[in-house]
């Protein structure tokens, strides 16, 4: 157990990512407000970005831009950073689309709460 926790502590960025992921997905699954769901999605995606970037990190590493003077210090792995650029764009696109859907739903239902929407649809909502 001690060894396990020690290893977890060494890998603290991954652990943080896991916790963020859990928070994000719990928000998505338990909240009924559509905005909160969307924010949950964003938290979750950030968690994965964090994990990726951490995987590319290196002790005493520097940004992966070639510089002539100092080649002693290692560069960090540039691949995860490049991938996450794409990942962020994807995340932005999803967010934009989800917001558009929320706007359309709000126009119709006058609420952003999923529970109230289904109440209205079932015709039992009272002002």
């Amino acid at each position: 157990m001690k060894i396990l926790l020690g290893k977890v502590l060494i890998n603290y960025p991954y652990f943080a990512a896991v916790i963020l992921f859990a928070i994000g997905s719990a928000t998505v699954l338990t909240r009924s407000n559509l905005f909160k769901k969307l924010i949950g999605i964003n938290i979750m995606e950030s968690a994965i970005f964090l994990m990726f970037i951490a995987a590319g990190s290196r002790r005493d590493g520097v940004v992966p831009i070639l510089h002539m003077d100092d080649s002693l210090r290692p560069y960090i792995n540039p691949l995860p950073s490049a991938l996450m650029l794409t990942g962020i764009v994807v995340s932005v696109s999803v967010t934009a689309f989800a917001l558009a859907l929320i706007v359309r739903l709000y126009r119709f239902y006058g609420t952003t709460d999923a529970k109230r929407m289904s109440d209205i649809r079932n015709g039992v909502a009272k002002e």
Partner: peptide, 19 residues
């Protein structure tokens, strides 16, 4: 997840498999 995190290659090490 905890076990997995513990098992992952140590963070920031030079010996990581990604290099």
């Amino acid at each position: 997840v905890l076990v997995t995190v513990a098992e992952l290659p140590p963070y920031g090490a030079d010996t990581n498999l990604t290099y």
